[in-house]
Structures are given as structure tokens and as C-alpha cells.
Design a protein around this nucleic acid. Sequence first.
DNA 1: CAGAATCCCTTGAGATACTG
DNA 2: CAGTATCTCAAGGGATTCTG
Lengths: 149, 149
Amino acid sequence: MEKSGYRQETNVDYQPLEIKNKLIKLFNYAPDQTLENCPIRDILSVSSDKWSILIIMFVGGYEVLRFGDLKKNIQGISAKVLTERLRSLERDGYLQRELFPEVPVRVEYRLTSFGIKYLHKLVDLAEWIKEDTSYVLESRKRFDKSSTT
Amino acid sequence: MEKSGYRQETNVDYQPLEIKNKLIKLFNYAPDQTLENCPIRDILSVSSDKWSILIIMFVGGYEVLRFGDLKKNIQGISAKVLTERLRSLERDGYLQRELFPEVPVRVEYRLTSFGIKYLHKLVDLAEWIKEDTSYVLESRKRFDKSSTT
DNA sequence: CAGAATCCCTTGAGATACTG
DNA sequence: CAGTATCTCAAGGGATTCTG
């Protein structure tokens, strides 16, 4: 029935303690610490938006890409948004911008070694999600059906 | 000088072809395929926003959490947004909502086995990012300095 | 070509008040 | 307690036009 191989029930054989310890390390759960100054949220926010992930994937896939090629490859992105995203990705060290003062100008973008490491994490995540697409779609159908009734 | 261990230059010893092949598989680069109907973007979008990731982490860390506890734990989230995020995460099968018809009502949230698997991916990503926080911060400083001049 | 500038509109999200 | 309803405001992002 469920092609995805997941059951809706929660899993019993997982260690919440192990996860919790990792989270404590990651976020510093101390009561006097607020989440506001948590660096993880700050840093994740740059690359977790809709477009940045795609930009990183395309630049990484082609090794080097020009502005116009990126715009063509990434369906639906506007020049303005693409520029903004490229700037913040460059600022955070994910990619490198190189300008060739020819006429007309040529600008090339490529990932830094940090960006490449991040790309691998993203591809890993994407591959996993692709595998489980059917699970999510089934889950949605189930949810929507039960909400209508 | 660079405590982070990254250089700003791109890495030579990485296989763009391997990555590109993975990306082709993931996105179906065929010219007649648009990215609009790409399931990966659709599914990633649910859990890639600012709050959902935190919600998944907290629910996973505590194994089971009530609505009010989540609100207390996640600094700055409003009841409205928390409700919205919980609904979409439930819809996509990341977590389970259980209502206990007591007075007053009690509602418990816990991750599904799918959600737990996703949590592990997220923790993995967060741990990696935490390691490289200093790299990103240095990169920002460098960028901002060179933009001002 | 690679953007910058401008305008405009949709969406996200905070605050507040209310309810089964 | 666990939300819903309403209002409001800021930000994100699209379309268009212009330029070194």
C-alpha cells in the first residue's frame, strides 16, 4: 500500500538522547541563552532560501557559470533576485565572482572549496528527498482527504 | 591566518562531472523539462524555511512536545506561525499530531520515522555549519571591508 | 553582458483579542 | 491549553527600464 516504505507511526528504535545531546551542543540550550544570537540560524538562513540552493547546485554542476547562463538555467529567477543571492553567497564565502573587463563585460561565478563541500551536503539531501517524494505526496493526499471530511 | 582551513580559491580535486551527473538525475535537465514541476523544489520548500527546521529539531530532541512547550522553546515564534508550520509539516508527513480531549485540551507532537530520518540529515548539516561558522564570519568581514573601499 | 534602479504587489510574520 | 480570527507592517520577489 505504501510504496515509500514508511509507516505513519513513529519509530521506536531511535535514540532521542543522542539527538538531544547533539542539539544541546549545537544550540547551547542554557536558560540564559536566547536563540537570537545562535550562529546556526544566521548562517543557515543565507543558503536555505528558495533560490540559493539552486544557484549553488548549478554553479557546482557546471564548475563555472556566467551570470546570463545562470539566469537561463534557473527558470523564473529575475536579474534582481539573482544578483542579490549571488552577492550574499559571495559574501558568505560559498562562491567567487570574477570580472573580466572585456566589452561587453564577462562575469564568472564558481564555487569555493567551502561551497563545494556545502554542495555535496545539498546533493545528498536532495537525493534523499527525491527517493521519498512519493511518501510526501501520499501523506499530503491523506491529510487533505481527512481535512475535507 | 585562516582558522577555518579553507582557502578562498576553488578546489581543484573535485569531480564536477560526478556532481553534474547527480544533478542531471535529480532535476532532469532535459530542455523540454521546466524546473517548475520539479518535486524537489516543491518538497524542500516546506521544510527549508526559518521555523520548520527548528520545530523538527526541537520535537525530535524532546521526542514528544506539546504546543505550548514548543512555543516556549522556540524563541520568538507566534502562535499563528507555529500553527501554520506544524500543519504543513504534519501534512507532508514529518510529524504527527495527537489530540487528547481532556479539559483543558492537550496536544502532542512527535516526529514520524520519516521526520526522524530528516532530522538526522538536518543535524548533520547543522553540525557541519557550526564547524565552519568562523569561516563564514571571516568571509563576511573580508567582503564588507572590500566593498566599503 | 551584467547588472542597477524603480515600481508594485504578494507573502511572511508579529501583535492582539477571542474561543471550544 | 491550543489554537482561530483579524489587522497590520515589513520584506521578498517579479516586471520593466536603463546603463557602463
